[in-house]
């Protein structure tokens, strides 16, 4: 628990470096693993919804386009983007729980195998676990222990009950929590219960969808430490969040999500000083917008989902744009240990 206590003291970004030292050990193990194959590979996926516009005319609303990420075992990949930019849909796409009017293109690989819809259905809940964001994701009329145990065969129920109790014990959830209903849980307890569901599944890939909204400093750090633990035990963790500070505290890599695509995947060490090491102008702008940095916002807003954009999706707001940027989506380039979608980086 020493880790958590340290986390509690880390109010601001200047301490990030200390944290880097502290986490040296995990960093090296993570680095070793980088050379191995990614557990989850998402390549150029696009997601659109078929909607009925006026009358019977169908339109396609594109919410994710040309998105590529990779998740490695033992690492935390944070997907950071503003609220409402379609981050949760990415999680649902990986799990295969999108609504029926969604259309998903592109390639996904899990553990070297093609991730088809059938495969997703087979492994979700077993190999891939979702940690949802709020108590709304718990059945309001089911007792907590039953929910966490989930749907199991009767003969295994006793065993699973014991496993569940052990996990709860570890997360400091008292025996009376077992018999509670979701509305009786406090915010912190809800968080630990939701995390328990993932631990219960012994999944290798954990997708946490906004696991830290509206939490106080202490609970936030505590929750983050659970994910760090999972990564240390060898899980690949995808942390989807709008809170870049929270992401920087524990992640190994940060994928910057903007208007349905990932503009840059940077290493966490790149986020320092004035962001000289960051590759994409948007990432730099995001970093400089933080209160403890320059506290400067850039003009404009993300393009709407129904806007058709020919060139770089960030073109309108970019300070370094040139003619090339308005024609065609920039290719994904590997630069300095990260990847970026920008013409002006070499």
């Amino acid at each position: 628990m020493g880790y958590m206590e340290n986390m509690g003291n880390m109010g601001n970004m200047e301490n990030m470096e200390n944290m880097g030292n502290m986490e040296n050990k995990t960093k090296t193990t993570a680095k070793e693993k980088k050379k191995t194959e990614a557990l989850l590979k998402v390549e150029n996926i696009s997601l659109s919804f078929i909607q009925y516009a006026s009358g019977l005319r169908q339109t396609e609303l594109k919410v994710i386009s040309n998105l590529s990420i990779e998740a490695h075992s033992g690492e935390i990949l944070a997907v950071v983007g503003s609220s409402g930019s379609g981050k949760s849909l990415l999680a649902h796409a990986i799990l295969g729980i999108l609504p029926s009017n969604a259309k998903l293109d592109g390639k996904m690989e899990y553990n070297g195998q093609q991730l088809t819809p059938e495969k997703k259905e087979e492994i979700r809940g077993k190999e891939i676990a979702l940690v949802p964001q709020s108590t709304n994701y718990l059945d309001p009329l089911m007792r907590i222990s039953n929910q966490v145990i989930g749907c199991v065969e009767e003969k295994n129920e006793g065993l699973m009950k014991k496993v569940q109790r052990d996990i709860f014990q570890k997360y400091d959830l008292k025996p009376d929590v077992d018999r509670m209903f979701p509305h009786e849980l406090s915010g912190g307890m809800t968080r630990r219960v939701l995390v328990s569901t993932a631990v219960m599944s012994s999944a290798k890939l954990i997708i946490a969808d906004e696991p830290t909204p509206g939490l106080d400093e202490k609970t936030l750090n505590e929750t983050l430490s659970y994910f760090k633990d999972m990564a240390n035990r060898g899980c690949a963790v995808i942390l989807i969040t709008h809170d870049i500070e929270a992401a920087l505290k524990i992640s190994d890599k940060i994928a910057v999500f903007y208007a349905g695509t990932v503009l840059e995947v940077a290493n966490v060490e790149d986020f320092k000083n004035n962001g000289e090491n960051l590759r994409h102008p948007y990432t730099r702008a995001l970093w400089n917008a933080l209160p403890q940095n320059k506290f400067q916002a850039i003009k404009g807003h993300q393009p709407m989902q129904d806007e058709v954009i020919d060139g770089c999706i960030f073109y309108e707001r970019c300070s370094k744009k040139n003619e090339l940027c308005s024609k065609g989506i920039p290719q994904l380039k590997s630069v300095n240990g990260g990847v970026v979608r920008c013409n002006n980086v070499s």
């Binding site: 979700r124 077993k126 089911m142 989930g150 749907c151 569901t197």
Partner: peptide
Amino acid sequence: SSDYVLFAKARGEKGLDLVLRH
């Protein structure tokens, strides 16, 4: 169409079992 059924699906529950349970 609730969040908790979505989560149940994400955890591998499906079909009649899901309807009966939730």
